[in-house]
């Protein structure tokens, strides 16, 4: 399971970087989405892929019995997904507005502020 996750995350990162290196701003946004999802999956798999019980303490005990899943990376990934969702929806709107203003889907034609 771990190796499958590792390969998936690697492929996602590679695809994201490939898309971000294209000149089209739409592909740039797709690349950003893939990138943030790859990061989310990476954090998710940080705690190890264990098929653990929920981290609850049974009645009468002071520690959970048996192996439990670490809940913290799941909380982190939830936060990260929400933040990425907000930021990426901003990016999508930005790309649309940029297209309306510049009338080009090409980063090479957006160099007015660089010179």
């Amino acid at each position: 399971m771990e190796s499958l996750m590792a390969v998936t995350i690697g492929v996602l990162f590679a695809t994201a970087i490939y898309m971000m290196l294209r000149r089209s701003i739409v592909k740039l946004v797709i690349g950003l989405m893939l990138l943030s999802n790859a990061a989310n999956l990476l954090i998710f798999s940080m705690a190890g892929m264990v098929r653990g019980a929920p981290p609850l303490v049974p009645k009468g005990l002071s520690a959970p019995a048996g192996a439990v899943a670490d809940p913290l990376p799941q909380a982190l990934v939830l936060t990260a997904i929400v933040i990425a969702f907000g930021v990426l929806s901003f990016a999508v709107v930005l790309v649309r507005r940029a297209w309306e203003v510049v009338r080009a889907d090409d980063l090479d034609r957006m160099k007015d502020t660089d010179t």
Partner: peptide, 23 residues
Amino acid sequence: MEGAIKYVTLNLVSSVIFLIAVG
């Protein structure tokens, strides 16, 4: 708009790297 695309992209990439490092 042109400046913002560069600003947003670079800062998002930096945030993702930060997030991965935290993980």
